[in-house]
């Protein structure tokens, strides 16, 4: 049961992120919500590679006689973190441009496209 703790944390992260996306009205808070979902999924990917009592998968000066955790999900997580930075930068730049045009970043006041 204690081994499931990272997965429960993942669900809490993704749940908080989706709650923020549904109910908050400030654009910066939406960016924070997307970042939370992203962190949850990165944690999920790293937890998939875990083996009990293993060390980090680096060959340089590693302790001998021990198994190593799986290295592939670490590569997937690294790619996902890079994509997350680009996404956050783009969303924050767009929030700045909306503030420049409309003077407010509440979703109720900047919405012009309807129907």
């Amino acid at each position: 049961m204690i081994g499931n703790f990272p997965y429960i944390t993942v669900i809490i992260y993704i749940g908080c992120g989706i709650y923020i996306l549904m109910f908050q009205k400030n654009l910066i808070k939406l960016a924070i919500g997307i970042n939370l979902i992203e962190n949850g999924i990165n944690l999920f990917l790293i937890t998939l590679g875990f083996k009990k009592g293993a060390v980090a998968p680096i060959y340089t000066q590693a302790p001998s006689g021990q198994s190593m955790v799986l290295p592939t999900p670490q590569a997937l997580t690294l790619t996902s973190i890079v994509i997350g930075i680009a996404t956050t930068a783009l969303i924050l730049s767009m929030a700045m441009m909306i503030y420049k045009h409309y003077g407010s970043i509440e979703v109720n006041e900047v919405r012009r496209l309807r129907g």
């Binding site: 930075i85 930068a89 924050l92 730049s93 441009m97 503030y99 420049k100």
Partner: peptide
């Protein structure tokens, strides 16, 4: 790339503050 992002965002903040 990250240097350009940081510099342009600072530019944008300066412009909105002047306005």
């Amino acid at each position: 790339g990250l240097g350009i992002i940081v510099l342009l965002m600072a530019d944008g903040a300066e412009y909105t503050k002047k306005k």
